[in-house]
Every structure is written in structure tokens, then in C-alpha cells.
Design a protein around this nucleic acid. Structure first.
Lengths: 148, 148
DNA sequence: ACCTAATACTTGTAATTTGCAAGTATTAAA
DNA sequence: TTTAATACTTGCAAATTACAAGTATTAGGT
């Protein structure tokens, strides 16, 4: 059998680099982790800090400080949750939404370019495969902490 | 069309977390970036610093210091290259090889578990897809700096 | 051969990021 | 009503990062 790990290592590294390069939006420059945070806040509905931190596998203290910076940058808003005043609900500001959309567009542009090098059949196969992988990984018991 | 970016974001995050969790080898604990470095040194034949740094998309100064730590940990050896004394050739020590092998084994164990949730057909398809993706990404002009 | 430029790396420094310990505030459970 | 658990925040101190500026070596032009 060919080397499975090598295949996946190279693939994930490429995507990691992609994420790294795609976080400059106009004047606002956000880090890789910050872009992941913004992405998750967009995807979920008013999530709590703990929720997002768990999803991303981040230490809550590190996360807390990252949120502080994002709030200062006026990309994220923290509102106390009325039903349980310990928790803060996270939302994106208008500017935050803009930044998220911009990054999203860049990523999709890249993905489309990647897929443009494939036939329709191949494209379908790859998409199906990624879905399969995601499902299979979520079933795994070996790894990893954040069970998304 | 379904949301391409979401699919890939989730997949790469999972693999990222996997890498993060899989770097504890006995007493030696190495960081995520260090494990990437060790992996690349193993894969290449006596690479130079610049080579590995480029492959990983790391700043050479950051890389230099990471190598210093890995040398102190006795996982990596730096030898001056006779034909060009500016360059240092990187190799793994015995212990370095052991650590690399251990991490590799863990990763493969995880991958095997993931694949055990699939049929033979699906497994073949996924592997073929990852290969396709790697090829397509390497052809892209949009991204990313390190052209591996 | 000789001067200049380019390459391969290293160090100074300063900012950012990280996580453990230990804190506060609030809610749940006994 | 006391105790425990949860959701976060701050005090640190260590690790990581990158820009600027350095050294050493090699390549190129004349």
C-alpha cells in the first residue's frame, strides 16, 4: 500500500498554508487562528465562548484573550446571555461579517481554481470523498478531543 | 452546489487537531511545527535548512531557532555541507528517527481506523481523490508560496 | 584577480501567542 | 444553604514569531 500518511500530510499542509495566506482583508489583518474563530462564529448561531473554543480545540484562556483582541478590532461582539449570565454569546459585527465574507470568497475562489483542473467526474468523486472522510473521522475513537 | 469551503475547513481542522495530539512520544514532547520539521527531514535526503523552511512555508529565522531547539533535544543533527560551506545538511539522530517513527505509527494507526469505517470501494476512491487534490493544488496559481 | 552581489544562515529585539494556576461571578445540586 | 460545578478572566512565565541587521561563504561580472 502506498504511504497514506504522506498523502494526507501534504494535503493538510497545503490547506494550512492556504488559510495562512488568505487572512489579509483590506486594512484588517487577522491571524490564522482568528480567522478560524470568525469562521466558527459565522457558522454557529450565537455560540458561547466555551462552545467555539471546544470546537477549535483551543485552551479557553487563550481563546478568551483572542476574543478580547477581536472585540477591540470591532470584528466580534460579546453579549451576556440573559438565561445564564455566566455565558457570553458571540456574534460578528458588520465589519466582522464583511471580513468573514471576504475570506470565504477568497477560499472559494481558490477551491474553484483547484477544481477547474479536474473533470466533472473527478470533481464529484473528490467532493464525495471529503464528505466520507469527515464522517469517518467523526466516528473515530482514537482522535481528537473536539468532537465537532 | 454544496458549500465547498465548509467541507474542506472541517476536514483540515480535524487533521490539524490530529497532528496536535499526536506529538507526545514518551518523555520527548515536541510541538506541532517541530513534528512537521522532523517529518520533512525524514522524507528528504539530507536537506538544507532553507529547503525545509521553504517546504513548510516558515520564515528562515524562526526555522533556524526551531532547529536549534531540536539539536539541543538531540533529535536533529546539523552538518556543514562540504561543497558549499554556507549550507547545513539536516539529518535525524537515532532518537530523532525513533520519534519520527513513533509519530508516523500513531498517524497511520489513526488513518487505518478512519478507513476501517469504509468499504474497500470507498477507501480506494478516497485515496485516489486525495492524490488528485494534491496534484490539482500543486497546479494552482492562486496559492501558496511553498511549491512543494 | 578583484570587487560586488547573492545566498545561507544566525542573532538582537520586541511583539504576539500560549497554557497552567489561581481568581471571580453565576448557576446547579445536595 | 452550603457545596460543587460551570463560564469565563487575569497573572504570570515560557515559547513562538518575524523584521532588521549581522556573519560567512560562494557566484558573477569585468
Amino acid at each position: 500500500m502506498e504511504n497514506l500518511r504522506e498523502l494526507f500530510q501534504v494535503m493538510t499542509r497545503r490547506f494550512g498554508l492556504l488559510n495562512k495566506n488568505c487572512c489579509r482583508v483590506g486594512e484588517a489583518e487577522i491571524s490564522l487562528v482568528q480567522s478560524h474563530i470568525v469562521y466558527e462564529i459565522l457558522r454557529k448561531d450565537r455560540p458561547s465562548m466555551q462552545q467555539v473554543a471546544d470546537t477549535l480545540g483551543m485552551d479557553i484562556t487563550t481563546f478568551s484573550r483572542q476574543i478580547q483582541t477581536l472585540v477591540k478590532m470591532e470584528l466580534v461582539k460579546k453579549t451576556p446571555f440573559p438565561d445564564d449570565r455566566r455565558v457570553s454569546q458571540l456574534t460578528l459585527t458588520t465589519q466582522g461579517n464583511y471580513v468573514a465574507a471576504k475570506i470565504n470568497a477568497e477560499m472559494n475562489q481558490y477551491l474553484n481554481e483547484v477544481f477547474s483542473n479536474m473533470s466533472d467526474f473527478e470533481r464529484e468523486m473528490v467532493i464525495k470523498s471529503v464528505k466520507l472522510l469527515n464522517e469517518a473521522m467523526s466516528k473515530s475513537t482514537v482522535c481528537c478531543k473536539p468532537f465537532i
